[in-house]
Computed example of a mutant assay.
Amino acid sequence: MESRSASAALRRPLYIEGPRGPWTQVRDEVVRSGSALLVAMLDEWPGGGGRPGIDGRADDDGWSTDTGRNGPRLRRLLGGEWPRYAALTNEAIRRRFVASRILLKEAAGAVLGTPAELLELSVTPSGRPYLRGYGQVDITLSHTEEILLVGITTRGVMGVDVEQADRTLVSGQAPPHICTPWEQEYLLSLPEAERGEALVRFWTLKEAYTKAIGQGLRFAFNGFCFGAEDGLPRLLSADGVPRAAGAGEEWSFATHWVRGRHIAAVALYDSGTGGVMEPRRAVLDEAVCRMFGYE
Rank of each mutant, 00 (worst) to 15 (best):
M1K: 14
E2I: 09
S5Y: 04
A6V: 12
A6I: 05
S7D: 15
G18D: 10
R20A: 13
P22T: 09
W23I: 11
D28K: 10
V30P: 02
V31P: 00
G34Y: 04
S35N: 11
L37Q: 12
L42Y: 07
P46Q: 10
G47F: 06
G48P: 07
R51N: 15
R51Y: 07
P52W: 06
D55K: 10
G56K: 08
G56N: 14
D61T: 05
G62V: 09
W63I: 12
T65M: 15
T65S: 06
T67H: 00
N70S: 09
R76Y: 01
R76D: 06
L78D: 05
G79H: 03
G80C: 02
E81N: 13
E81Y: 01
P83F: 05
R84E: 13
A87C: 06
N90Q: 05
E91H: 00
E91A: 08
I93A: 15
R95C: 07
R96Y: 05
V98M: 15
S100F: 02
I102E: 01
L104R: 11
E106S: 12
A107R: 06
V111D: 11
L119F: 00
E120F: 09
E120Q: 04
L121C: 01
L121E: 00
S122K: 13
S122H: 06
S122C: 08
V123Q: 13
S126M: 15
P129Y: 11
R132S: 09
G133H: 04
G133N: 02
Y134P: 00
Y134E: 15
Y134R: 09
D138H: 03
S142A: 15
H143M: 05
T144F: 08
E146Q: 14
I147K: 00
I147G: 01
I147M: 12
V150I: 10
I152M: 03
V157P: 01
V160W: 02
D161Q: 02
V162T: 02
D166K: 10
R167M: 03
T168G: 03
L169I: 15
A174M: 02
A174D: 04
A174H: 02
P176V: 02
P176Q: 04
H177K: 00
Q184F: 02
Q184Y: 01
E185Y: 02
P191N: 08
E194F: 00
A198M: 11
F202L: 14
W203M: 01
T204K: 01
L205F: 07
L205E: 02
Y209T: 13
T210W: 05
A212I: 09
I213M: 09
Q215T: 11
Q215H: 06
R218S: 14
A220G: 08
N222Y: 12
C225T: 10
A228G: 14
E229I: 05
D230C: 15
P233T: 05
P233Q: 08
L235S: 03
L235D: 05
S237P: 01
S237F: 09
D239S: 09
G240N: 12
A245S: 14
S252D: 11
H256T: 04
W257S: 14
H262S: 01
H262F: 10
A265F: 03
V266F: 00
Y269C: 12
S271Y: 00
S271D: 14
V276S: 07
M277R: 14
A282N: 10
A282F: 11
V283Y: 05
L284W: 04
L284D: 02
D285T: 07
D285L: 10
